[in-house]
């Protein structure tokens, strides 16, 4: 792993394949709001587990190294 300048207040989850620094204590719900993504329009997978109940997003606290995938439907055949 590369050395990173981690803010003492920040954690760095990997969101859609990219590291993103968020404030310590942030939930996935906070992350979505920060990204201006409507939770109703997406499906979230946290550490390979699908969050079926969207009301849980506001209680799922992020940690450094967490994997978060935010997906939706695009055109396809």
């Amino acid at each position: 792993m590369m050395e990173r300048a981690v803010s003492p207040d920040g954690v760095i989850p990997v969101v859609n394949g990219e590291e993103r620094t968020v404030a310590a204590g942030s939930t996935i719900g906070d992350l979505l709001r920060e990204l201006s993504v409507s939770a109703d329009a997406v499906v979230v997978e946290h550490n390979r587990e699908i969050v079926r109940d969207r009301t849980r997003l506001d209680s799922m606290v992020l940690a450094t190294g967490d994997s978060v995938e935010i997906v939706h439907f695009v055109g396809g055949g």
Binding site: L35, V74, G76, G77
Partner: peptide, 29 residues
């Protein structure tokens, strides 16, 4: 009507989501 699952583009310059264009009462996804 078929659709694919892909990552949301978090850089927000383009929104490639297809659902806003498809009436779910009219089409079976």
């Amino acid at each position: 009507v078929t659709v694919a699952v892909r990552r949301v583009n978090l850089n927000r310059d383009t929104d490639d989501g297809v659902l806003p264009h498809l009436d779910p009462s009219r089409y079976f996804l």
